[in-house]
Write a protein that binds this DNA or RNA. Structure first.
Lengths: 129, 129
DNA sequence: TTTTTTCGACTACCACGGTAGTTTTCGCCG
DNA sequence: CGGCGAAAACTACCGTGGTAGTCGAAAAAA
């Protein structure tokens, strides 16, 4: 029993739900229509499968099903990023950033911004405490 | 036809091949035996499938097949990381690092080290030029 | 009330990662 | 030369993401 590993469509659907909080099959279909030319039934099927896996919750309003995300964005991001870090970088997040730098995806300005962000985060964390 | 998206076992196999340059089925099997208790045939099947997808190359030495990686580590890392960044962070690598910081996976010391690394990389790049 | 539209439910496929058993091949040793 | 043993080849199966058609029920329209 390996992990479910959400695919592209599932992620796209969740993205829609994260933005709208609630949506019907038609809503999701319409939102994704531009990027992917999928049939409505495809979205419906996917939503049903995702409901089975408890990724989304479904509520009935009359004869229409209304879906909402049951996992939150941060949790999904954390899980997927953590997964990648575990798979490729032996669980060391720094190694991932090293990779990004070596590939030229981050420049000095970006790092400086990150530095500020760390400072800010530290402050917020102590404020909460 | 979506992308193949290498799985855990495939990655583990590639890891072995990246370290040894060349390996037989038995070699790979032995290397992975500790972590995963897989049958030799499983490794063999996976290697054959990977050969079909041109992830590895196969060379015959008498009766034995010798495999070597046909994709390089950096390329795979780049591809998988790029994929994740595209999927989750709208193609912006900085957003990924922001996430890491917000999750507390990177502290100030780590950032300072990254800064040094950027400096070094910039130097190396100009040296090559 | 009858017809048409709209939804969801069910079913069916395909590709592919992962896992392994069965069969065939082939070189080597006695 | 013949049989043994190891390696490769073939086959099979499951779960799941992705894609969509069909069908039936129910609501809306005529």
């Amino acid at each position: 029993m390996a992990r479910p590993r959400l695919g592209d469509l599932q992620l796209a659907i969740l993205e829609v739900l994260w933005e709208r909080a609630e949506a019907t099959v038609a809503d999701v279909h319409e939102s994704l229509l531009v990027d992917r030319g999928l049939a409505t039934t495809t979205i419906a099927t996917m939503l049903r499968k995702m409901e089975e896996r408890h990724l989304v919750a479904q509520r009935r309003d009359g004869r229409v099903l209304i879906y909402r995300a049951r996992v939150e964005r941060d949790a999904v991001h954390r899980s997927l990023v953590g997964d990648l870090v575990a798979r490729l970088f032996d669980g060391d997040p720094k190694a991932l950033v090293h990779h990004l730098i070596d590939e030229g995806d981050l420049d000095a300005a970006a790092i400086d911004e990150l530095r500020r962000r760390v400072q800010k985060r530290r402050k917020e964390a102590s404020d909460v405490r």
